[in-house]
Design a protein around this nucleic acid. Structure first.
Lengths: 109, 109
DNA sequence: CATAAGGGCAACCTCCGGGTTGCCCTTACT
DNA sequence: AGTAAGGGCAACCCGGAGGTTGCCCTTATG
């Protein structure tokens, strides 16, 4: 199936990563440890609410998953969407590589 | 780490890719062929101006480069930033991988 | 030369994203 | 029991992103 170049929600995935705060949250969580909202807000100059909103964005993008444990909700990294991004990058750079090859073949002919 | 002039931070790179229109423009250009603004606007329901703005964003992110040829400005794909994105993804999934390894080691102990 | 094609610039509009504050509910702790 | 900690919800503010329109300049093309 020759996918349409721009995968359905690839853009929203990139968009979810297109924010320093979210990128930082995701980086923290990428160590596999689970963290609460308060835990993730600590050390930040942001409000809990702000962090909450960012986490929701990450969750809707599938980059993070949450579950309530007692009175707090624990967030965990979810690596699957990363592969989708890699797939897009690969498709783009493969096209580019092909173009280079053809160019080189042309020059060498 | 010295940042190259055209190099932006990772978040803005992701942000530049976090838009369907830009993603589509970039995908078209990733075949290595050069295109004018009018050429990229054709077939789109967008105004030339809209496309121009998007191209500027892509250019500031270093994902595209432009040069004036006669009365038109030609845009070309620029693959370097893609590597920066890959680097981030790798760092994140490596941390994740390490976490999995430690977990497995713990279980097997 | 006259005119169309390709673009740049600037003003303007609308809407959403990031962030805050205030209030209230539930869960833990002593 | 009483209180503090963790969070959800909703309202609100502000700035910038995406898009348009209008005008003008430059370069091709007849």
């Amino acid at each position: 199936m020759l996918i349409e170049a721009t995968g359905r929600d690839t853009a929203s995935l990139f968009a979810a990563l297109g924010d320093r705060t979210r990128l930082s949250l995701l980086t923290k969580l990428s160590d596999g440890k689970t963290r609460s909202i308060a835990g993730l807000s600590a050390g930040t100059d942001l409000t809990r609410q702000a962090v909450t909103k960012h986490l929701r964005v990450l969750e809707e993008a599938g980059l993070v998953i949450s579950s309530k444990v007692g009175r707090e909700s624990q967030f965990a990294f979810r690596p699957e969407p990363i592969d989708e991004i890699r797939a897009y990058l690969d498709s783009v750079s493969q096209q580019w590589g092909d173009a280079l090859s053809r160019l080189q073949a042309f020059v060498e002919t």
